[in-house]
Design a binder for these strands. Structure first.
Lengths: 166, 166
DNA sequence: TTTCTTTATGTTATAATGTAGCATTTATTT
DNA sequence: AAATAAATGCTACATTATAACATAAAGAAA
């Protein structure tokens, strides 16, 4: 399957937003089927909402959106769906923002590396093996066994930087 | 000034805990004086409490301890002191734990790199220029201007790993 | 010194984020 | 069809963090 849009790295201003979402949903659906995971309507809907933002979404933002078509939704509704989506690699939690973003490379490597623009709040996913390798190497040197490495880089994306400084 | 104890990297089981604390306080005091910052009794006490744990401390844990000798302390009391301490590099916030640890290298580089043991909850500070450089390089390649890079590695420290797997 | 100004702290209330626990429903297996 | 397991509904609550305004303390200017 070939996808026309970049699900990785930093999202470009003019990119096709809806296409990202529909591709992500399709990938999740397929992957769940092949793994025997239950991609329920609720989980699907939450994933859709997360992607619709194409930027970090707080759990309560998601809850608000979810309530548009599901009035009885409560915090656990969202948190449980997110738990499933995060556990299975369809969504990442950005710890420094207490927010969630769709994973641009579900199923592949999951290094958990993010570029967070402090201006437009967009998040780019890096998934860089060299970064992962250096972290692994240095940790190992200290006898530390790496389980889940996280890199969250706050800064300024190219678009915002250009807009600000020419 | 030479310090006998390792304020950096992963704390060893037998290390002199109190010495870490007193050294960290001394460093903070000196640095504040030289920079014209106000190292008030409250801020000093909060820093002391953070170091006393020698592991990540939640804001409300700190508040509890603070109340032992300051009954009227409230959340803003602690959060404001922490804000000062973080801003000036004496304390780091571990985003993935919503907790705070004393900075082992106040005043030097502040790469914000942490090894977090999921077993004993100890946190080691890395401060590795190679890791920082790779992140910087890869971000730059995407036109991203790095402001504050954070690396939080969840895993198992040598002590816990040895204890578990021989 | 005395006043002015800034910075820090006190205090109350509330916002934002996240979970526990148990009932009910829906799916899967036997 | 019955039994089991998984997911969701739902209430209540726990944890983390901040807003807003009053007071006090420190530093700068007169």
């Amino acid at each position: 399957m070939a996808f026309s849009n970049q699900l990785n790295t930093f999202p470009q201003p003019g990119h096709d937003h809806d296409l990202c979402t529909s591709e992500a949903l399709k990938i999740a659906e397929e992957r769940c089927r092949s793994l025997g995971l239950r991609f329920t309507p609720l989980r699907r809907r939450v994933l859709e909402i997360v992607w619709a933002q194409h930027g970090p979404a707080g759990a309560y933002d998601i809850l608000g959106k979810l309530r548009d078509d599901k009035q009885n939704a409560a915090p656990p509704t969202v948190y449980r769906a997110l738990e499933f989506l995060v556990k299975n690699g369809f969504v990442h939690k950005i710890e420094s923002l207490n927010a969630f973003v769709g994973c641009g490379s579900s199923g592949k490597n999951h290094s958990g590396q993010f570029l967070i623009c402090g201006k437009c709040n967009q998040v780019g996913e890096l998934d860089d093996t060299e970064i992962a390798a250096v972290i692994e190497k240095k940790a190992k040197r200290l006898g530390f066994k790496v389980a889940r490495p996280t890199v969250e880089v706050l800064g300024l994306c190219e678009t915002c930087d250009t807009a600000a400084n020419g």
